[in-house]
């Protein structure tokens, strides 16, 4: 039997909004440790890695490891039926081919449940090598979303260049070029409003705007985002989900033609 009760169904809804652009369906792997998901987009350019820790749930019970394949458009329909302050309880029997979502309003004045069919997905997991990143940049997630949105108007790719002075995002296209430079901030009082750069070696890599824009759908989950860069290695864009876990995106770089 699997049962997980999350205080805020809105948090799960945000997670769903952050992955459904990239994935049509995905397997949620449930174990004692929590709920995990790892899946590549259809083009095998990006990978989504979600980890929701069991102790982030109000109630969590997983008697046997369970993989639940779900269509994310269907799952979105289910979560569209939840109120913003509802709790959600996810339930499945050990060998079930369905999963149940129960939404409860704060004062129990409304309780609804939706049963959804599960899918058998043949998803392979990828081994992600440990990497010593050359540059790790922390910045406000809203600022990152803004930069990606602004630069995407001009070109299809963004070059992220990092030195110890700061980080530069650049693009070029038919109408011209655009550059945004962020300096490291000195005010560490408010960490989630700061730009913090941990640089071992300067690095400059090119990435697709389209994918970066999809990743920024996770902005409502966290005030801060972490970008980890290293030559010839996929970019990691990481959003911490407060008290619950994290959502990481990996993106293969573009290389010179």
């Amino acid at each position: 039997m699997f049962e997980a009760r999350l205080a805020s169904s809105a948090t799960f809804k945000k997670v769903l909004d952050a992955i459904k652009d990239l994935l049509n369906e995905a397997s949620f792997d449930c174990s004692d440790a929590g709920i995990q998901l790892q899946a590549m987009d259809n083009s095998h350019v990006s990978l989504v890695s979600l980890n929701l820790k069991s102790d982030g749930f109000e109630k969590y019970r997983c008697d046997r490891n369970l993989t639940m394949g779900m269509n994310l458009a269907s799952l979105s329909k289910v979560f569209r039926c939840s109120g913003s302050d509802d709790t959600v309880t996810i339930k499945a029997q050990d060998d079930a081919d369905t999963v149940t979502f129960m939404f409860e309003a704060k004062k129990q004045e409304k309780i609804s449940d939706y049963e959804m069919k599960l899918m058998n997905l043949d998803q392979e997991h990828l081994g992600i090598p440990e990497t010593e990143f050359s540059c790790i940049i922390k910045l406000p997630s809203g600022e990152f979303a803004r930069i990606v949105r602004d630069l995407s108007q001009f070109g299809e790719s963004i070059v992220i260049s990092c030195t110890k002075e700061g980080v530069k995002f650049s693009t070029q296209g038919d109408i011209g070029t655009g550059n945004v430079k962020l300096a490291q901030t000195n005010n560490f009082d408010k960490e989630d409003q700061s730009v913090i750069i941990d640089m071992q070696e300067p690095v400059s890599l090119t990435f697709s705007c389209e994918y970066l824009n999809s990743f920024t759908k996770a902005t409502p989950l966290s005030n801060q985002v972490t970008l980890s860069l290293c030559d010839n290695v996929p970019l990691v864009v990481e959003y911490q989900i407060p008290d619950l876990g994290h959502l990481k995106y990996y993106l293969a770089p573009k290389i010179e033609e």
């Binding site: 350019v45 299809e156 790719s157 090119t206 573009k254």
Partner: peptide, 14 residues
């Protein structure tokens, strides 16, 4: 502006 690489060049199936 550059050729897109595949993630499969970097990560191998487990």
């Amino acid at each position: 502006s550059g050729n897109q690489t595949s993630l499969m060049n970097f990560f191998k199936p487990k």
